[in-house]
Amino acid sequence: MKKVTMLALTATMLVTSLNAEEKKVEVQKGIKMPYMAFPMKPGKGMYSTKGKCNMCHSWGYVLNQGPQSKAFWRKKVIKMIDVFQAPIRNEDIDEVVEYLYANYGNGEEG
C-alpha cells in the first residue's frame, strides 16, 4: 500500500512539474531587432542627411564605408536614388554630399 501511494505521489509530482514547464514555455511572437546607436558627427546638413539616409538604413551603413572622396560620396548618394529608389530630390543631393565629405571625407575631391 505504501509503495502504491509513493508511486501515485511520484506520478502527481511529475505531472505537476510538466505543467509548470508548459506554462513557462510560451509561444514566442517574434523577435525584437537588435538596436545599435551610431552617433553622427555634428555639422552643417546633419539633420537633413540623417532624415534621408535613415529612411532606409542605419547610420552604421554610412560609417562602414570608411573615409571617402567627395566623388565617392556623390556616387553613393546617386546610387541610393537610382538603384534603391531613395526619395531624395536632385536639389538636395549637394547638401548630403557636402555633409558626408566634410565629416567622413578622405581629403580627396576625386
Partner: peptide
C-alpha cells in the same frame, strides 16, 4: 575588406 587600400566602399 578593411585591409584593401584605397578603401573600397562596403562594410569595413
Amino acid at each position: 575588406r578593411s585591409a584593401f587600400h584605397p578603401t573600397p566602399g562596403g562594410i569595413q
